[in-house]
Design a protein around this nucleic acid. Structure first.
Lengths: 342, 342
DNA sequence: GTGAAAGCGCTAACAG
DNA sequence: CTGTTAGCGCTTTCAC
């Protein structure tokens, strides 16, 4: 069906190939009249430029790579959806590339990927966004890239980030405003800088409110359900328990909920639990988990747009865009249990 | 860095371009000696053929499309992972394409996608695998495709399927073997043929065991958590309740669990609940859900391999591969509650 | 403003 | 078994 090439459009419009090409690429030096004529005829014929030919001639591939190493399928799915939207819109392809951050072959893998698939640019997601070796390589090889959720070296590339520290601060403030002063915390995966940010926001809120952080209620998780379970078992079997536990993500919060249930600690009556990410599980579990929603899809959209812009203006400025997260109050948080005392 | 084209390889090997090309594509009519020489030199130079040039010349794109419309991010992620593995292995690209099965523009969308992105072939996932209009279009336009989880018209294309009906039968048998005779059922999304298969397996097991299916305990869900909740509320507020509920997927089972909890019906003590799919939530919720695990990733791998083979031998036979699912017993199923009577 | 010629890196079709 | 000659459909260069 589609044997419509640039040649037939040119012939029909009585202009040269090059003029059609100019119109297609929005180049200057075409009279408005010619431009319109070509546009109309292209439209009428349903002409679509062949990306392969285009790429071959201009040494581009119109393929963007999306790199990730993230166990959280929900996060990745949202990222993909956002990136895909922009790609479709701007006639780029998106190559999904899962990889292992822990592998010492990471940089080599990516190098191979770029050269082999002729990628025009890369979108990095956490924790890859803050991987020094990878960043270094991309910088020295002059591969265009943008980073999502990066926290370090923000001026070395464009980036789209959320304000985890601040939202974490607000979540903690919320717990404090409910009356909690004995608050535990389950940290996220040490390789993810979000884990640090979230913890820092928590610390800052405690300091501001003059509340002491009990080391014993501070546990190191790794963003998995199992780690949440494990940490909760540590905290909730102590004699002196906190009245609230702030978990660095929802899976860990779900793990805490499970342990609370097993230990017959009623949530939120005897214990408040909060999460982060607004993962589906936060709505499916009972009680539903108070959490924080990041605009993940919007972040991916922004990042992809930035990347494509950068491809067009290679020496443009590096931008950092901050998108705001949002606190979602659900059933797992409430004022602390008051012992009927005296 | 990579200015190594077929020309430099040819020059270095003292042969023509075409000979190099032949070696690369594993074509016959090259002496072993020449073949080895070329292979070695290509290796040494780290030569990688430019897919764009290759595609342009041979009218292929080496891009496969993965079509889906599925709310289940976990399923899609596994499918993607499997398809990706094979694509990387065989030097294909995978273009992820979410779409709306409900849209009357579906066929047009896909048509546009294929022509615009020059896709070589398509992998279809449920419920798209059984969409007559789409299948018809692909067939008449001679677009190569394979289907995952198709149930209809199995000889019109290669397909990779699982034995949902049989596994559903076995799950039901398992419930019966525990002693359940009053068993409710929550159906899946009517647009997914898996929903029918799962229900049929259930029916067959009941019939085999001579157990009557109570219409009132049969509810129509749509594979979402919310629908599970809704159906459970119907069933569990009746005077006469079943002692087990078989849900067509895990999200709905989780919804049932939530309602049971609210109604203070203890699972599995007073009520057994089973799911389907082995979604993460089946392990994260309490009690953990007895379910069925499909080899989703392996299915995607198979399907992608079949597609690539078909691309090479366009008139080869259409194959149907069946992969076995597996019953996973967890905490949500147990023998029925015996009233301490008389 | 526009066009002609050359070529991106590869494969197809044919010739030897 | 191997090489030659033409392109694939587009962009680039440079001329007009």
């Amino acid at each position: 069906m589609s044997k419509i090439t640039i040649n037939v459009v040119a012939a029909r419009a009585n202009v040269s190939k090059k003029t059609v090409s100019r119109v297609l690429n929005n180049e200057p030096n075409v009279s408005d009249k010619t431009r319109k004529k070509v546009t109309d005829i292209a439209e009428e014929l349903g002409y679509k430029p062949n990306p392969l030919a285009r790429g071959l001639a201009s040494n581009q591939s119109f393929i963007l790579g999306l790199l990730y190493d993230n166990p959280n399928t929900n996060y990745i799915n949202n990222i993909q959806a956002g990136a895909l939207q922009v790609c479709q819109d701007k006639d780029y392809h998106l190559l999904i590339h899962p990889c292992k951050a822990s592998s010492d072959q990471l940089v080599n893998n990516v190098k191979e990927l770029i050269s082999h698939s002729r990628l025009d640019g890369l979108v990095l997601t956490p924790p890859l966004s803050d991987f020094p070796e990878l960043i270094d390589f991309l910088l020295t090889s002059k591969t265009p890239f943008v980073r999502i959720g990066a926290t370090e070296n923000l001026n070395c590339s464009s980036a789209v980030v959320s304000n985890d520290e601040q939202t974490s601060y607000e979540m903690t403030q919320y717990l404090i405003s409910l009356g909690h002063t004995a608050i535990g915390f389950v940290k996220g995966h040490p390789q993810h800088n979000s884990a640090t940010e979230r913890f820092q926001g928590f610390q800052r809120a405690l300091k501001t409110a003059n509340i002491k952080l009990h080391e014993k209620w501070l546990q190191q998780g790794d963003y998995t359900f199992d780690s949440g379970e494990h940490c909760a078992r540590q905290i909730l079997t102590m004699n002196e328990k906190p009245s609230a536990i702030f978990c660095s993500n929802d899976y860990m919060a779900a793990g805490v909920l499970k342990v609370a249930n097993q230990l017959e600690i009623s949530v939120p009556h005897q214990l408040s639990v909060t999460g982060f990410d607004d993962a589906p599980i936060s709505r499916y579990i009972w009680p539903t988990i108070s959490t924080i929603q990041q605009p993940v899809e919007a972040m991916a959209r922004q990042a992809t747009s930035l990347l494509i812009e950068k491809l067009k203006i290679p020496d443009g400025e590096e931008t950092t865009v901050v998108l705001e997260s949002q606190l979602i109050k659900r059933e797992s948080s409430a004022p602390p249990f008051k012992r009927i005392s005296r």
